[in-house]
Design a protein around this nucleic acid. Structure first.
Length: 186
DNA sequence: TAGGCCATCTGGTCCT
DNA sequence: AGGACCAGATGGCCTA
C-alpha cells in the first residue's frame, strides 16, 4: 500500500481553541502558551461543546458556560495530556531503535513497531529456550529452570507454549517474513 | 482523491 | 481533589 518514508512531519500547532475540534489555524500560539485570547476562545468553545453534548444526555449542570478556573484547568489538562503523549511517543521511538528491521530509512508506524517487537521477543525467547535446554538437558543449570519458568509464565497467562509448539526457526521465519512484508509495504 | 497515520482536544473514569 | 489514563472526534499531512 503506502510507504512510510515521510520526512519529519511538520505538525500544525496545537489546536486553536477558538476553532471547533480539529480546526487548526497554524499561525496562532498553542493553547498551552496561554494568553487572554486563548483562554477566552477556549471558554466559548467549551460552552458550545457543553450545549452540543446536552443532546447526548450528559450535560453538565450550571448555566452560562465555564468559569475561569474551569477553563484554566482544561488548559492545564491539555498540556499534561500533550506531555503524556510525547512521553509515549518517545517510548515508541526508543522501541524502534532496538528492533532490528531493514527499513532503516523508513520510520515504522506504531502498529508496525508493536507487532514487530512482539514477534522479535517471541523469536528471541524461543531461541534462548532451545539453546539453554539443549545444552543442559535434565541437568542443573539455567536451561531447565528457564524452561520451567517460561512454562509457568505461559500457563499463568493462559497462553500456549511457544517452544513446545514451534521451533525457534519458525519464529525467526515469521519475524523475517514480517520484516520483508514491511519492506514491501504490505 | 482516498486512505493511512498522526497530533491534539476533550470529557469520562480510575487511581492515589 | 487532582492527576493519570483512556477512547472518541476531528482535521492535517502524506502517499499511491
Amino acid at each position: 500500500m503506502k510507504t512510510k518514508s515521510r520526512p519529519p512531519r511538520r505538525r500544525a500547532p496545537p489546536q486553536d481553541p477558538e476553532a471547533t475540534p480539529g480546526e487548526r489555524t497554524p499561525d496562532r500560539p498553542p493553547p498551552g502558551s496561554g494568553g487572554p485570547d486563548a483562554t477566552k476562545a477556549l471558554r466559548s468553545r467549551m460552552a458550545r461543546a457543553q450545549g452540543a453534548r446536552a443532546e447526548g444526555g450528559r450535560r453538565r449542570p450550571g448555566p452560562g458556560g465555564r468559569r475561569e478556573s474551569s477553563v484554566q484547568r482544561r488548559l492545564e489538562s491539555n498540556e499534561r495530556e500533550r506531555q503524556r503523549m510525547h512521553k509515549l511517543n518517545n517510548a515508541f521511538q526508543a522501541l524502534r531503535e532496538v528492533i532490528p528491521h531493514v527499513r532503516a530509512d523508513k520510520k515504522l508506524s506504531k502498529i508496525e513497531t508493536l507487532t514487530l517487537a512482539k514477534n522479535y521477543i517471541k523469536s528471541l525467547t524461543a531461541t534462548i529456550l532451545t539453546m539453554s535446554s539443549g545444552r543442559l538437558p535434565g541437568l542443573d543449570g539455567p536451561g531447565p529452570k528457564l524452561y520451567q519458568h517460561y512454562q509457568q509464565q505461559q500457563q499463568a497467562a493462559g497462553g500456549t507454549l511457544v517452544a513446545a509448539e514451534a521451533p525457534p526457526e519458525g519464529h525467526l521465519q515469521k519475524y523475517s517474513t514480517q520484516i520483508h512484508n514491511f519492506r514491501e509495504g504490505s
